[in-house]
Every structure is written in C-alpha cells, then in structure tokens.
C-alpha cells in the first residue's frame, strides 16, 4: 500500500497557458493558396474531361464519332444510342437490360447476405474476448491483400465441382467473401464506438444478450450497416474478373463482362459503348452521391482512427 502523503513540491510545476488564439490573418492570399487552387483546377480537368468526352461521344451518331478532327460538340445531338440500349424490344436493348438486371440481382443479393454475416461477426470481434480472436481478425484483414486472380483457379475448379459454374450463385458466394473482411473491419469500428454500458443496461433491464444486441445495438449501428452495404454493392457491381471467368452463357453475364461482348460483337460502336458505360456508371455514382458521407466513412474508417 502506498502512503499518499501529499508531495507539495510537485504543485509548483508551472501550468502552461493555452496557446493564444489569433484571428485568421488578413494577409493577401499567399502563393501556397494559389498553388492549391492550381492543383484543384488541374485535377478537376483531369477527372472530368474524360467523363465529359464519354457523354459527348455517346450523343453522336457512329459516323460523327469516327471523324478526324473530332467534332468537339456533335453537329447533331442524338439520343439514339440510349434509346437503343434501354428499349427491351430490340435485340441490343434486350441483351443490355438483361445484363443490367443480372448485375443488379447479383450485387444486391451478395450485399444483403454479406451484411447478414458481417454484422454478428463484427460485433463478436468488437465485444468478446475469446481465444484466437486476434489471429482470426488478422486473417480476415489479410484477405484484402490477396489478388482475385490467385483465387481464381481453385475457385473455378471448386465451382465446377459444386456445379456452380455459369450460375449467379458462384458470383454471389465469391462477392460475399470479397466484401466480408472490409465489412467486418468497418462494422467493428462502429461497434467499438457504441458504449458497452448500453448493452449492460439492457441486460440488467431484462434483455438477453441477443435481445440487447437486437434492440439496442443494431439500430445504433445502422449508419455503419449502410456504409458497409454501399461499399459491398459498389464492389460487386464493378467486379469483372470472376464474372469473366465463371460465366459463359450470354444471358447470365453481368454488365462489366457484357460490355466487353458488346464492344467486340458490334464492331466498335464507340458512341454505343460510351452510352453503355454511362448507363452502367449511373447507379453507382448516384448511390455514391446520395450516400457519400457513409461511403467516405467506409473508405477511411479504421485506417485513420488513431
């Protein structure tokens, strides 16, 4: 036992005064700020111009696109390419909408399943201390490191063995695991921030551990679940390598792979391809813009938290 006899001498330590707050200087905007604006302007052009050119091209006829020097703005703006892709009655549109639906269906299903599995796992990693917890968690994270192609061959053989080649099941199963490590990591961050006392209070109030989780913790972690879901959806929507390898019949293809067929089969219809690329980007960009806050959080959570 210690004897806390007050050591008065320690009290003489001078208290540091807080740094004086200063009003922001009114000096003319310095060179650094101009440099910052220059960088932003350059990056804005770098980022936006290719996308702008994609849209402009998609509004041209094929003939107008294949001109040199290019028409900077189409002489004749046409929406023909979009109409063709989106009308289910012609062959091209029918095929494209099929790809679109396939992508949507695969992405949404793998996202939902992913969340259902990730939520309890992340919760467990955040709350419980059980043997092997640490090792498990790092193995989860390490999945991030391995290239898709490395898993491609064994998974292809496995899917063949399971009879899942050329089914959407193979993609859903794969995308599920794709998203899991990050989802778990991300959700764990959210659960870490929910005070454990809330659950303890619930358990004392008569809830079982599961009820405490379901009634109290789950609703509080919904931002995390949304963030996770968006991330998983976008990843699945954009995935190419597995879809390229696992699927071969035309009616099963997802958009990224379908786009390629489109490209080769219709003899480089550039305006059509640009229109298809545009339509394909719409769902993810809209999702991203609407739920930007969550998406950014999904990206940065964990790495930045000190």
């Amino acid at each position: 036992m210690s004897t806390p006899i007050r050591n008065t001498a320690a009290m003489t330590a001078t208290t540091t005064s807080p740094a004086p707050t200063r009003r922001r200087s009114k000096k003319p905007i310095g060179g650094w700020r101009w440099a910052g604006r220059g960088i932003l302007a350059f990056l804005l052009l770098f980022t936006a111009l290719p996308m702008v050119w994609m849209v402009i091209t998609s509004l041209k006829t094929q003939l107008a696109a294949l001109q040199y020097p290019p028409q900077w703005w189409p002489n004749e703006v046409t929406f023909e390419n979009y109409v063709q892709l989106l009308s289910p009655n012609n062959a091209v549109g029918h095929e494209f909408l099929q790809y679109f639906w396939n992508s949507f269906y695969v992405s949404i299903l793998s996202t939902i399943l992913g969340v259902v599995i990730a939520v309890p796992a992340a919760y467990a990693f955040s709350r419980f201390r059980f043997p092997g917890r640490q090792a498990l968690f790092f193995s989860v994270l390490l999945r991030n490191m391995f290239p898709a192609v490395v898993f491609l061959m064994p998974l292809f053989l496995m899917m063949k063995w399971l009879g899942l080649v050329n089914t959407h099941g193979s993609l859903i199963l794969t995308y599920l695991t794709f998203g899991l490590p990050l989802s778990i990591w991300l959700l764990k961050g959210f659960y870490d921030n929910i005070p454990i006392q809330l659950e303890q209070a619930a358990r004392i109030d008569g809830a079982t551990r599961f009820q405490a989780f379901f009634h109290i913790v789950m609703p509080l972690s919904s931002p995390g679940i949304i963030a996770t879901a968006i991330y998983a959806f976008i990843m699945a929507w954009n995935e190419y390598v597995y879809a390229l390898t696992f699927l071969n019949s035309k009616d099963k293809l997802t958009l990224p792979v379908g786009l390629q067929r489109f490209f080769s089969e219709y003899a480089t219809n550039w305006p059509g391809l640009m229109a298809a690329s545009f339509i394909m980007s719409v769902p993810v960009v809209v999702l991203f813009l609407v739920l930007q806050k969550y998406f950014v959080r999904a990206l940065t959570e964990g790495a930045v938290k000190s």
């Binding site: 005070p195 006392q197 809330l198 303890q200 209070a201 619930a202 358990r203 004392i204 109030d205 008569g206 809830a207 079982t208 109290i216």
Partner: peptide, 17 residues
Amino acid sequence: DPKDRDIAMVFQNYALY
C-alpha cells in the same frame, strides 16, 4: 444472467438508449 437477478443499475454515463 443479469436479467434474472432482479437488480437495477444506474451507470456513470447513464447509458440511456
């Protein structure tokens, strides 16, 4: 289990839901 002990608890940070 806590729920079967017939106790109530007030937490430092109140732990209000």
